[in-house]
Design a protein around this nucleic acid. Structure first.
Length: 488
RNA sequence: GCCCCAUUAGCUCAGUUUGGUAGAGCAACUGACUCUUAAUCAGUGGGUCGAAGGUUCGAGUCCUUCAUGGGGCACCA
């Protein structure tokens, strides 16, 4: 693993490094000839035959036939075969390819031609080592399978597994498509603080850090919501932010402590408007990134093209469990939880229990895109109440493939009521709830100046990517997911 | 934090049932080979079997603890 105790193969490479030095060859030159990428050569191959050119790449395989040698080299844009012959290079330079290994970078100058079997190849007139590799690369045929190595040494994963490289290219496309969609609709991309004196906008425990000069504790943000809404106050009617949130909680196939989220806010819109926006956004992004509006998931086909279903939270609960919310008494619901082996906190509130049931019984079955609506005010301290029933708020969550992807509501812009809601959160905190909204006076001050009625939406980008790429876990779509430190 | 599973050569994996000399392919090394392409042919080397204890005449294999990863539960939108 480390060169402190090299394996046999690593010792061989270090020895070759010494040999190169003895021959006056710099194994890590600052620059090498590279006029044209391999992708360009391949795409206009006919145009380049009979023209001398230079390119470079990493050696992926070596097939030596005595006085001639074939190699495959890859510069990250593509892979091409090169052909080296002793009568082209001379005995000395040809002999030096003994010092090259799979994994090394070389720059070659030569003429593209087609081999007998039609393989696009460069006949090399001269070459120069562009960078020595001191470890053997993972095996060419099976790539690298160990999930832990894939995550810890992502460079080996993307090097050895083309599908893994493609996935991260798709990830980039997805985020690009989100920007394209929102920009084209006149949304302004902004950046708000990651280091916050107070955290809010979600129920989660934060990471805490410290600023030396200011001598103050700071929190890594758990959401961007409260700052983006300040911008609504400040006269930006359509804003969005794409960035990392940090939540100090467990890790599983749906949760990484740092994750990428989108939040969008639109003045004079509401949760209905956000529903339309979200649906169109996801459809657009799917088409742009994976080129289709359907995904296969566990042998089922997820259809993003049809209008997304809209279902009431209470109806879904009733269908699945027969429980009538909110008529059914808390004791009965608790009894149901016990019967179904759903664990819950002793002093959990009514809606907390309902939420537990929803998570265990309903959520995993929401495979097709489903907007769930009618959430209780109790668990939505930043959302506006519905006009018909003050116990509920204008809010939806979007579920696809049994996962929560998005959360949106008509934003509460009444500062008096917001203050009351914060107070209720404080009470919940005092009675032992660890994940509540902070009482954010600075945010309230902004609301007091007047925030336009607005819709806001948050979307977990990593989860969206997981669904669109068919990945099994959020860890597979994050380049460097958080892992425990490995001791040697 | 709790339960279950995995960890063997650089990589991919056998071997664990029933304890008895550590295996294969690729990669590496030596030799042959001037259109090969998972090149081929002949040969060679490479292991703290995740770590530490224990049981045993003898442990990759059985037991305990620990580490890392995975799955589940809990926590957590």
């Amino acid at each position: 693993m480390s060169l402190l105790k090299p394996t046999e193969q690593e010792r061989v490479r270090i020895e070759k490094l010494k040999q190169l030095k003895l021959k006056g060859i710099n194994p890590y030159p600052a620059r090498v000839p590279y006029e044209i990428s391999i992708k360009e050569i391949l795409s206009e191959f006919r145009q380049f035959t009979e023209t001398e050119l230079s390119t470079a790449g990493r050696i992926l395989s070596i097939r030596s036939h005595g006085k001639s040698t074939f190699m495959d080299i890859d510069d990250g844009t593509g892979k091409i075969q090169i052909y080296l012959r002793v009568d082209d290079l001379g005995e000395d330079r040809y002999g030096l390819i003994e010092l090259l290994d799979i994994g090394d970078f070389i720059s070659v100058r030569g003429i593209p031609f087609l081999t007998r079997t039609g393989e696009r190849t460069i006949r090399v007139h001269s070459y120069i080592l562009a960078g020595k590799s001191l470890h053997p690369l993972p095996e060419k045929w099976h790539g690298i399978k160990d999930i832990e190595t894939k995550a810890r040494q992502r460079y080996l994963d993307t090097l050895a597994n083309p599908e893994s490289k493609l996935l991260f290219q798709t990830r980039s496309k997805i985020i690009q498509a989100i920007r394209k969609f929102l920009d084209s609709r006149g949304f302004l991309e902004v950046e708000t603080p990651i280091l916050q004196p107070l955290y809010g906008g979600a129920f989660a425990r934060p990471f805490i850090t410290y600023h030396n000069t200011l001598e103050m504790n700071l929190y890594l943000r758990i959401a961007t919501e409260l700052y983006l809404k300040r911008l609504l106050v400040g006269g930006f009617p359509k804003v969005y932010e794409i960035g990392k949130n940090f939540r100090n909680e467990g890790i599983d196939h749906n949760h990484n402590p740092e994750f990428t989220a989108l939040e969008v806010y639109q003045a004079f819109s509401d949760f209905e408007g956000m529903m339309r926006l979200t649906e169109e956004l996801i459809r657009f992004v799917a088409k742009e990134s994976i080129g289709k509006e359907s995904i296969s998931y566990n042998e089922e086909n997820i259809d993003l093209e049809q209008p997304f279903r809209r279902r009431k939270l209470t109806e879904l609960i009733k269908e699945k469990t027969g429980i009538n919310v909110p008529e059914t008494k808390k004791e009965e619901i608790a009894a149901y939880c016990q019967k179904e082996r759903i664990e819950f906190n002793e002093n959990a509130s009514y809606w907390k229990l309902v939420d537990e049931i929803f998570k265990h019984k309903v959520e995993p079955e929401l495979i097709q895109p489903t907007f769930v609506v009618e959430y209780p005010v109790e668990t939505s301290p930043l959302a506006k109440r519905t006009e018909e029933n003050p116990n509920f708020v204008e809010r939806f969550e979007l579920f696809i493939a049994g996962r929560e992807l998005a959360n949106a509501f008509s934003e509460l812009n009444n500062p008096i009521e917001q203050a009351e809601r914060f107070l209720e959160q404080q009470k919940a905190r005092e009675s032992g709830d660890v994940a509540t909204e902070s009482f954010d006076e600075d945010f309230l001050l902004a609301l007091e100046y007047g925030m336009p009625p607005a819709g806001g939406m948050g979307l977990g980008i990593d989860r969206l990517i997981t669904v669109l790429t068919g990945a099994n876990s959020i860890r597979e779509v994050i380049l460097f997911p958080l892992l425990r430190r490995k001791q040697r």
